[in-house]
Amino acid sequence: MTTVVYVAGGILAIAVLLALYRAVRGPSILDRVLALDVVLAVVGAGLVLNMVAGRHLDNLVLLVTISLIGFIGSVTVARFVTDRK
């Protein structure tokens, strides 16, 4: 079980690094928003992994909060992206 947690954690770490690379490089702000949404999804996955590894349920509220924050964040940014020429 410990091995599985480490393996999944390693894969998540690689995923978050790739997403952060896109968030830094991303040519437009929408690319960055998208990449940061993926980062939030990976953070949520890490919270679940932490709950499975430690056999506790403390992070469930955080999980819902994180998806709420991701929703509000990306909708707000997308709303204010306008066509400036």
Partner: peptide, 12 residues
């Protein structure tokens, strides 16, 4: 768990 992590990797 590994399947879910691989989904994140695919997205990255």
């Amino acid at each position: 768990l590994v399947g879910g992590a691989l989904m994140s990797l695919a997205a990255g």
